[in-house]
Amino acid sequence: MAVQADRQEEHLRGRVWTVRLDPYGRPAAGTVRLSCSCPACPDQHLPGASPGRRAAVGHVNTHLARIRADGGPRDQARCSCRAADCAWHTPDPAAQPRGGARPAAGAARCGTGNVTGQDLTGWLQGDVERVLGRLVSDGWLHLPGTVAEVTASRPEDPTAFTVPALLPDHPRPFAFGKVTRARVSGWAQKVVGDRKIRTKKPGAATRLLALYTAAHTRPDGGLGHREDGGLRLDDVAAFTTLPPNRVAEHADLLTAADWLTEADTTRGRVRGRLTERVLPLGGLL
């Protein structure tokens, strides 16, 4: 406890309020209560956890909007409660690139596809329900049932899904068809499921970094086109949903997992090389 207190004292204390979601009424009804520690904010009752989370984040944003109108907050301001069920952290903005990659690969041809719980846990580990819930609530992904049913689905009985943006009546973001789609999906699964990476128990951002580096290699394993001097740091950060100044720590994890021989993220570039053991997975620019 003393160590935690010391770390908290390193940060300047800002305005404090607490937005909570709690069960309300009969459990079968699924109603949740949104409450705020600010005396001027009345309680709200929402018909489920998903609309409750959206309302909670909207409520926090309302407070932030008032602060911004007064010239704040500080650039580095953030929620510091670190609670696992904190409503501010639950609808993670990184949900779409992290969770959307697998369904997008599966639905690239016609906007629909099948997925199993095993497919998703390979990508998202313990974040499956949270990330899928965000994709569904944002309208990016349509499911025939609940998120829990998707995570429980098995290879012999996969769950059908729809990605509306990839339906035939929409502009086609991908030019490849069924065979290539299957190959891309299988390749991506091999990358994010790499045994040595798994032993490091990385988060989704590290796995996405492995995917990006593997997809942008020369025949000799070097990252990016030779004339470019590496991969653009901003592009890597955008794909992995990381701030540019945090890419280095995840690149170091890949070096420790024998994925990269070395990694350098200075001067706005990510330079490095795939190790010999993973060269067969290289995208070959």
Results as ranks from 00 to 15, higher is better:
Q189I: 01
A175V: 10
R130K: 13
R98T: 05
T90F: 14
Q118N: 00
V192N: 00
L141S: 01
A165N: 02
T116D: 02
A101M: 10
G139L: 05
V147W: 04
R134H: 08
A101Q: 09
L141Q: 06
L143V: 01
P155L: 06
T199S: 13
H142N: 06
E156L: 13
I197M: 08
E156V: 12
F176W: 13
A105S: 14
P171N: 03
D92C: 03
P93V: 04
K190E: 12
R154D: 06
P103N: 12
V179P: 02
G100C: 07
A104L: 06
G126R: 09
G145T: 12
T151W: 08
Q125G: 08
G133T: 04
Q118D: 03
L167V: 04
P173H: 02
T162L: 10
K200P: 01
V115A: 11
T90S: 08
V150H: 09
L208S: 09
R195L: 12
W187Q: 07
G203Y: 09
V184P: 00
G203F: 11
L120H: 00
A101D: 05
V131I: 15
D127R: 15
A107Q: 08
E149T: 08
R183E: 12
A204V: 15
Q96E: 14
N114Q: 11
G203Q: 11
K190R: 15
L208G: 09
R172A: 13
P155A: 06
D157M: 11
R130A: 12
L135F: 02
E149H: 13
A204T: 15
R183N: 08
V192P: 00
E129N: 09
V128Q: 08
P173Y: 03
S185E: 12
P97C: 05
A94D: 06
W123L: 07
K196Q: 12
D157R: 15
L167F: 00
A205E: 15
L208E: 09
E129G: 05
A148E: 13
R98K: 10
L135T: 03
E129Q: 13
G113P: 03
R181G: 15
T162A: 02
V131H: 05
T146F: 10
G122K: 02
G133Q: 04
G106C: 06
K200N: 09
P97K: 06
L124T: 05
G106N: 04
F174M: 04
A108N: 13
T162G: 01
I197G: 02
S137M: 03
A182I: 01
L120Y: 01
D92I: 07
A107F: 13
N114C: 02
K190Y: 00
F174Y: 13
T112M: 03
A95C: 04
R98F: 14
G106R: 15
V191K: 01
T90A: 15
P171W: 03
W187L: 12
V150L: 14
A182T: 12
T90Q: 14
A182K: 11
D157C: 13
W187E: 05
V136A: 10
R154Q: 12
K178I: 11
R183M: 07
D138H: 06
G193R: 03
A188Y: 08
T90M: 14
A152M: 05
A101K: 01
G145L: 07
V191N: 07
D138Y: 01
A148N: 05
V192R: 06
G193H: 04
D92E: 03
D92R: 07
